[in-house]
Design a protein around this nucleic acid. Sequence first.
DNA 1: GCCACTTGCGCAATCGATTGCTTTGTTTTA
DNA 2: TAAAACAAAGCAATCGATTGCGCAAGTGGC
Lengths: 336, 336
Amino acid sequence: MANENIEKVMTIHDVARELGVSASTVSRAISGKGRIGEATRKRIQAYIDEHGFYPNAAAQSLAQAKTNNIAIILPEVKTLVDMPFFHTCMYGVEEVAQANDYDIIVIITNGKDTKNLERIIMNRKVDGMILTRTYENDFFAKFLKEHQVPFVTVGKTGEADMIQVDHDNAGACRELVTVLFSKGIKKMAYLGGNMEQMVNISRLEGYVAAHKRTKREINEDIIYKNLTTKVLVEKAVEDLLLRDVDCILCEDDFICDEVVRKLAREGIKIPEQMKVASCHYSRVLDNYPVTITSLKFDIVELGRRACQILLDSINNKIVPDMTLLDYEIILKESTK
Amino acid sequence: MANENIEKVMTIHDVARELGVSASTVSRAISGKGRIGEATRKRIQAYIDEHGFYPNAAAQSLAQAKTNNIAIILPEVKTLVDMPFFHTCMYGVEEVAQANDYDIIVIITNGKDTKNLERIIMNRKVDGMILTRTYENDFFAKFLKEHQVPFVTVGKTGEADMIQVDHDNAGACRELVTVLFSKGIKKMAYLGGNMEQMVNISRLEGYVAAHKRTKREINEDIIYKNLTTKVLVEKAVEDLLLRDVDCILCEDDFICDEVVRKLAREGIKIPEQMKVASCHYSRVLDNYPVTITSLKFDIVELGRRACQILLDSINNKIVPDMTLLDYEIILKESTK
DNA sequence: GCCACTTGCGCAATCGATTGCTTTGTTTTA
DNA sequence: TAAAACAAAGCAATCGATTGCGCAAGTGGC
């Protein structure tokens, strides 16, 4: 009854019958692989162009053992406004994927549970994966490696033998800190986030490296780690105000946001009484009366590159193990 | 050579051979459909649990004409920080999809080009779709309807005979405006965004309805539409300052953000000299010294509901044509 | 003890593409 | 002109699941 209305979709056999050729010929006409006469090719192509034949993706996947899908793994992020990183990155990935006739499957995960990851791999729903948040000794990355799934990490994994794409966080931070020192800053505090995440490890590395290069002492008392909540940031600020610091370097714009607010509440003027810089720019930093010095990364580009490298890797091209993208240092009023 | 290392994945036939049964029996044991003995069921299940067999998704899709994928269509958004809506919504969709063993394919589109949409539908890569931004007389929605693809729109389409899930934007706005009037506001300007988008149409509707209910005159001079850039918002504010308005209602937090900044630059105090409210809360509104009155919507829930309804619809359950979710009016300092 | 009915499970077709092999027909070459 | 070479296109197997049908064994009624 109801089914009578459902128009059946055209298959390769329909096209073949219509043109009086075999299905294999149609297949070869479309793919261009195998031997086929030019005249037949054109005739079939013309028919398809006119009538709009689309091959069944499942049948193709089955026959070719290839899905033309890639997965992108996003972390569960509670405070989305503060975390445009992953979604911006996704835009880049999607752009390149589309351009290459791939679709992206998005998996959101808390980072611990591999069930979904396992299912999607073992069901062979994708040809490869992009991990957008990496940890030291990354669990997911190891899992993928074990299962011989092509994958690229956005961010470092701290392991060799994995394809990684990242901004040069360590280098950028090192340069930023060095520049700030050269502008007369004496004692710079560092406020960092979750130290299990590689990005945070890299940034702190940069901070430390800049101290070493300029032969300054590293003072552990003014290095704060794992500031994952507003309250922790607030406490850190209170604490460092007692420690004769003249600049606060924030690991990201979320922390920076809290720092700026806290300083305002304390009546401390930026930059006169305290200089502030962030290792990551996003629009949040435009919300204050004083503009904030920061590092700027092109995150869409990061996504694009990660995707391009993944696709190359899937197609057995040779790709670099580690790709580091450029950054920009943006000096603003907050460190004048 | 290289291929010798690649371990072949287990198929249903491997399981069958190993247990001395037929593939059909294994299939029936897994699905629970068809006639199968309880003892055999358990034996097969036990083997699978132990050895971890996962069916090939492509083969299943082909056999069942069902992909267990849904697509979510996101608009191209330039200013991500200002637009957490779509991504928050995606979180809700993903949550419900995962819980029901569906994966989500994300398509990002400029809203005009149907090529990707067409491809993904005609290739039968998904069982249904969620549209996250709707326009009056929606092109995509019509396209999907024509192709008999199950779909749900997040936001209204202005058409009957389509499954729509939305917050009650019109009702919420109407109530907010009414409440503000009851608190003594005399003349309220409305600053709206792109009037092709249904959400904006609905909100203005609410504003108008509140005027009618309270028997106030509607003054077209203080209704601004299509304020899609900072500059336009700025100009609108300049303009309405000459018009004896005592409250500005902003269509969303992006506009509100610009309004608050502009008023600050003009030295106009909120709420003493001008009251301000927004029809949409996001964390952006927490960035000012004065807290802002707004409407609050649970966007993750919106995504969840949309997805649940889509899945029900795919499985031929009866679903409501129009689902309107609740809202919250948050009165803060900006309208005191 | 015979027939009807149910239960458990295997056989083989099917979904819609791809691809190695074969056949057919044409062209080239000796 | 016959043999060799080659191009074009069809045949049929294959990918890995699902499912209608049918057979054999078991159960129950009378």
